[in-house]
């Protein structure tokens, strides 16, 4: 019958309209900003820097290795390492800038970082009045505590914490073993020297430098 398709269509729209009062399955929108959809843990927007402890400068995990700067596809990261009084490069950034207006949130910096220091934030309301400087994020704006990372993505943050703790424990064990071995070797060398050349003073073993 001509028109039956149209009548069927009206039935569907009526079902959706009435249904939207009773079930969220039929509902299309929510009332932002009063109501906000819950973001999933993996949700990402822009990168930030994680710091441990209380100091956003001393606690930064970043060692200014510049791998992320090199890997970043749109080249929005800019890093200059800190130097001490003698001009020697230190393992932390003096400048760490991310241009949020250029960043495309691809997460490649996070994958590239070997120190788990750069992670993805999930803020999305970052509108500013100044188009240029306002979205150029500096080190102090980017640094956020580890507790914040736990807050936005507890699964990943716990996993990273456990991994870092494990690495630290292993490094400590290794250092302890190395120190013990060095002490033993030193004692042995001292004993040997004492036996062989009682007249000459034993030279202390040179500590290993890395």
């Amino acid at each position: 019958m001509l028109g039956s398709g149209i009548i069927k269509g009206f039935y569907i729209t009526a079902k959706n309209f009435v249904g939207s009062f009773f079930t969220t399955e039929r509902l299309t929108t929510i009332q932002y900003p009063e109501v906000r959809a819950k973001l999933p843990h993996a949700s990402r927007s822009f990168p930030f820097l994680v710091y441990d402890g209380d100091s956003p400068i001393d606690g930064l995990r970043c060692v200014a290795c510049r791998i992320c700067e090199k890997e970043c596809p749109p080249q929005c990261i800019y890093i200059v390492a800190e130097r001490d009084e003698k001009g020697k490069i230190m393992k932390k950034p003096r400048i760490f800038d991310i241009d949020y207006s250029v960043c495309m949130g691809c997460q490649i910096c996070v994958e590239a970082c070997p120190f788990d220091s750069i992670k993805m934030d999930n803020v999305y309301e970052i509108a500013v009045r100044d188009r240029y400087e306002g979205l150029l994020m500096h080190r102090d704006q980017l640094a956020k505590p580890n507790s914040y990372f736990h807050h936005i993505n507890a699964t990943d943050a716990t996993e990273v914490d456990n991994r870092l703790a494990e690495e630290k424990r292993k490094a400590e064990e290794k250092a302890r073993a190395a120190a013990a071995a060095k002490a033993a070797a030193a004692a042995k060398a001292a004993a040997d020297a004492a036996v062989a050349q009682a007249a000459k003073p034993a030279t202390p073993p040179v500590p290993e430098t890395k």
């Binding site: 398709g5 269509g9 569907i12 729209t13």
Partner: peptide, 20 residues
């Protein structure tokens, strides 16, 4: 939900005389 959407969209559109 998606199967229901497909069926509903079919009912809403595929046989609709104006669309044809």
């Amino acid at each position: 939900l998606f199967a229901r959407y497909l069926d509903e969209q079919d009912a809403l559109l595929t046989g609709n005389e104006i669309l044809l």
